[in-house]
C-alpha cells in the first residue's frame, strides 16, 4: 500500500513534488482592490469582490511574533499523543504579508523576532485512510 500525502486543508498549499519541485503556500489576490490573503478565498474581506486570483506566496520570511504551547489544546486537536509542546508564529513574508503557522522550533530561547525563516513541510498526523496529512511550517534558517 502506498501512503499518499494530503494537504491539511484545500487551497492552502501546493505540496512538494516527487521530482523535487518545491512546495508553496497558496493564497488569493483581489482583482478589484489588490488585497492579498493566505489561503485561497472566495470573497475579498476588504471589498467583497468575488474576482480573486490564486497566487503563490514566498517561501521565506522573518519571524514577527511567536509562542510555544505547553499544554494540550482541547479536541479537535490532532497533535501527538502524548502531547509534545509546539511553537507557532506570525511570519512576515517579503511581499508584505503576515501569516500565522506552526514552527518547527518549540524552544522559545531559540526563537527571536526578526530571525529569518524558511518554509518547510512536515507530516502532522494521518487521516482515516492512513494517508499522511502534511502541514506547512516555518523553520529558523540554518546558518550556512
Amino acid at each position: 500500500m502506498t501512503i499518499a500525502q494530503v494537504s491539511l486543508r484545500d487551497g492552502m498549499m501546493k505540496l512538494p513534488g516527487e521530482a523535487g519541485e518545491k512546495g508553496t503556500l497558496l493564497g488569493s489576490r483581489c482583482g478589484n482592490c489588490g488585497e492579498r490573503f493566505f489561503v485561497i478565498r472566495e470573497i475579498c474581506e476588504s471589498c467583497q469582490s468575488t474576482s480573486l486570483e490564486d497566487i503563490q506566496l514566498s517561501a521565506t520570511g522573518s519571524l514577527y511574533a511567536f509562542s510555544v504551547m505547553y499544554y494540550p489544546p482541547p479536541p479537535p486537536y490532532r497533535g501527538p499523543d502524548p502531547f509534545v509542546p509546539f511553537g507557532i508564529g506570525w511570519v512576515e513574508l517579503p511581499e508584505g504579508l503576515l501569516v500565522y503557522l506552526p514552527l518547527t522550533e518549540s524552544n522559545p530561547r531559540k526563537l527571536q523576532v526578526g530571525m529569518k525563516m524558511d518554509l518547510t513541510f512536515g507530516v502532522f498526523t494521518e487521516d482515516e485512510q492512513g494517508n499522511d496529512i502534511i502541514v506547512p511550517l516555518f523553520a529558523p534558517r540554518q546558518e550556512e
Binding site: 511567536f66 486537536y77 490532532r78
Partner: peptide, 28 residues
C-alpha cells in the same frame, strides 16, 4: 477552553487554543 473556534484545520493544529493566540500578542 473553547473547543471549536475558527477553522477546523487550525483547531486540529491547536493554533487557536486561546492561550497560545493570546500569548503571541504578549510576546510581541
Amino acid at each position: 477552553m473553547f473547543q471549536d473556534l475558527g477553522e477546523q484545520w487550525q483547531n486540529e493544529l491547536g493554533m487557536k487554543a486561546s492561550p497560545i493566540a493570546f500569548a503571541t500578542v504578549a510576546q510581541r
